[in-house]
Design a protein around this nucleic acid. Structure first.
Lengths: 195, 195
DNA sequence: GTCTATACTGAGATAGAC
DNA sequence: GTCTATCTCAGTATAGAC
């Protein structure tokens, strides 16, 4: 990506993705986007209808990227536990938070069905994929039969999203890691005493 | 609280608490506060140095309130599991999110050690109290000995904070409840086969 | 203490030249 | 397509009257 010459339109989208991640929708002004992208006002209003239209394009792309990442992590080999652990333990820039989840705290995003749409879809997709894995684990006997896949999946995604909150509150990534380790310790299939 | 006559200063603080909860720090303007409080500009700058000073006062109070709530829930009778469940299952206005946790997504709050301070302190306090309960549960044999109290506490708080994200993304409180139930199903002490 | 008036910058969008 | 005016209103704060 770096060093690649991007079209003006691409630069606007990528810059908007960065700023939405850093500052959210309310905290991101068209002027800030244009300055960072090194583009004039006219270009933005030529390619996009306005701030919300540009943001929608950026959010959709970020959502697509996240699905691809999740597919890669959860589609790998290994037990159900291993794949869930891979999702939880993946390298992250923890203090930056989640580029999708953070938008749920944005009042203007939540107030707009159009902007909230891709956020909702992306998170629902991740939960669904995780629920599939948990179901596999239950079916194979790896996980206890009483576990409800969509509930475990929700807990897993919530731990990640909440982990960002803990880490950003303290300014320390350890808080994120602690939560993840706690969940994994609860999820770990105990070696069944077959005696 | 309702119907009680509040001083102008009190009205400013309470209104700011509301708006910070609804819209965050970046999304809350002094003008919006003044209009909702029905107060003129002068009063605000008489009692407070500016937006950040007023916000700091409001955040501190919200943090105190949260500690009191947590003390009440975790100080009740019952097993460790029961008290943690009480915390997780307490009545909440889920779609509003957490008035403290949401501030961690606010770039201006995170950029200011002064504003982030009470947010960090409050969340650390909740984690600490929960860790105490988990430690009790481990000591009494209610929880497995390999569980690390501060990790389980982090997972519990993260599930709540992340649950808000899931619920707000979908516009449905069920997503929050699912995550909480998932975590509780993992945490539930299995009836030990004493045979 | 509280109010209104004023000031200045930024947010968000439009108009029109090149 | 991209740029630079220009416009209107909101954000944040100060000044000074009552």
């Amino acid at each position: 990506m770096y060093g690649v010459v991007m079209s003006t339109q691409e630069r606007l989208i990528e810059t908007t993705r960065e700023l939405l991640w850093e500052r959210g929708y309310v905290g991101t002004s068209p002027k800030a986007i244009l300055q960072r992208a090194g583009v004039g006002q006219g270009s933005m209003y030529h390619h996009f209808a306005g701030k919300s239209d540009l943001a929608l394009t950026a959010i959709r792309r970020t959502g697509e990227e996240m699905r691809a990442t999740v597919d890669r992590l959860l589609g790998a080999d290994g037990s159900a536990y291993d794949r869930i652990a891979a999702y939880l333990l993946r390298e992250r820039d923890v203090l930056r938070g989640c580029p999708v989840g953070r938008l749920t705290m944005d009042p203007d995003v939540i107030a707009s069905d159009e902007l909230r749409g891709p956020v909702d879809d992306t998170i629902a997709y991740v939960k669904g994929r995780l629920a599939d894995i948990v179901q596999e684990g239950v079916d194979s006997g790896e996980f206890a039969a009483h576990l409800v896949p969509r509930e475990i999946a929700a807990a897993v995604v919530a731990t990640v999203q909440g982990g960002y909150v803990l880490a950003r509150a303290s300014g320390d990534t350890d808080a994120f890691d602690a939560g993840v380790r706690g969940l994994l310790s609860l999820l770990k299939p105990s070696p069944v005493p077959t005696a």
